[in-house]
């Protein structure tokens, strides 16, 4: 494929993602419309002064028509102004900049764990379908999907922190300040978060690999006398790498959701704590800011996957 062809695909995907981003911001802002009663009075909380209520009315431009409210909110958000917390008055963007690295560290570690454990499991199951290894891997996968991440986190804390005293139970350290302490705090939450991912990667890899390994193409390779290992690595895995890409981008989305609860277990000051406290205290700018950031991350990831997809698999471009 020519370079200009590639650029054209990337351009088209970028254009296609614009409506999704705009609609998502619309949904994020529209959440405000779900607040029952007079929004300003509800958000100001009990015993709020009239002045406070007026401030909040001003903040969201509640006296203006809806689309004007939305427009000015979007304009500010696009310039990095996600307004201030109603409780602490801290700029929401500052809170997010402080919390996001903790969340990203866990999610990235969990993704790596899911791949590092899931891929070998999937290969082992696919090369001997129907064997006890296959049964074992599929049983692990079923459990991994059904186990609540936060409960797994609690079990890990009980065993590795309280009983063996190997790893810290709670808290987080910045990766920049002390990489070693930071990783040791992030390992248990990442493993708790990775359980569903391991299952998903192993399952997907197994099913697509089994399909490929039983295909005519592979039978021909066997007939040609190629060693099984070379068939697996050069022909099998190369063909399923595209499927794996889809799974990973899907997992990133799910893990961003699950991390909210896992962070609560490990008392990590990340995006999860931010949005849960925001929702409990009706600190709406914070809630909107966190959702907005997460949606941007997901949309960007989907876009990257789409582009990688069309680069890896030339058939898609047509």
């Amino acid at each position: 494929m020519s370079n200009s062809g590639r650029l054209r695909i990337i351009g088209r995907r970028l254009l296609q993602s614009i409506p999704v981003v705009v609609l998502s911001t619309f949904i994020v802002f529209g959440l405000l419309k779900l607040v029952p009663g007079d929004v300003a009075v509800t958000l100001a909380g009990d015993n709020a002064s009239d002045q406070r209520i007026a401030e909040i009315r001003e903040l969201y431009g509640l006296n203006q028509p809806f689309f004007l409210q939305y427009g000015s909110w979007l304009w500010k958000a696009a310039h990095g102004d996600l307004s201030n917390s109603l409780i602490s008055n801290e700029a929401v963007l500052t809170s997010i900049q402080r919390c996001l690295p903790h969340t990203l560290l866990i999610v990235v570690l969990a993704l790596l764990t899911a791949m590092l454990v899931g891929i070998p499991l999937g290969i082992a199951a696919a090369t001997k379908p129907g064997s006890w290894i296959d049964g074992f891997v599929m049983a692990i996968a079923s459990l991994g999907v059904a186990v609540p991440n936060f409960w797994l986190g609690m079990l890990l804390v009980a065993f590795f922190s309280l009983q063996l005293n190997w790893l810290p139970a709670t808290g987080a350290v910045s990766l920049m300040k002390d990489p070693w302490a930071s990783l040791s705090h992030a390992i248990l939450p990442a493993v708790a978060l990775a359980s569903g991912g391991i299952a998903e990667v192993a399952r997907q890899l197994r099913s697509s690999l089994v399909e490929i390994l039983s295909s005519q193409q592979v039978r021909t390779l066997h007939a040609k006398g190629l060693p099984p290992s070379s068939i697996l690595w050069r022909h099998g895995l190369k063909n399923v790498s595209v499927n794996l890409l889809t799974v990973v981008s899907l997992l990133a989305n799910r893990m961003l959701a699950a991390t909210v609860v896992v962070e609560a277990v490990f008392a990590i000051p990340g995006m999860g704590g931010l949005i849960v406290n925001g929702a409990m205290n009706r600190d709406f700018p914070v809630v909107q800011g966190v959702v907005f950031t997460m949606v941007l991350i997901v949309v960007t990831l989907n876009l990257l996957t789409d582009i990688l997809y069309s680069v890896l698999d030339p058939r898609i471009s047509s």
């Binding site: 409506p19 609609l23 998502s24 619309f26 949904i27 699950a258 997460m294 949606v295 949309v299």
Partner: peptide, 8 residues
């Protein structure tokens, strides 16, 4: 658009 929201 809805699918790009992490569920929880």
């Amino acid at each position: 658009s809805f699918l790009s929201f992490p569920a929880i």
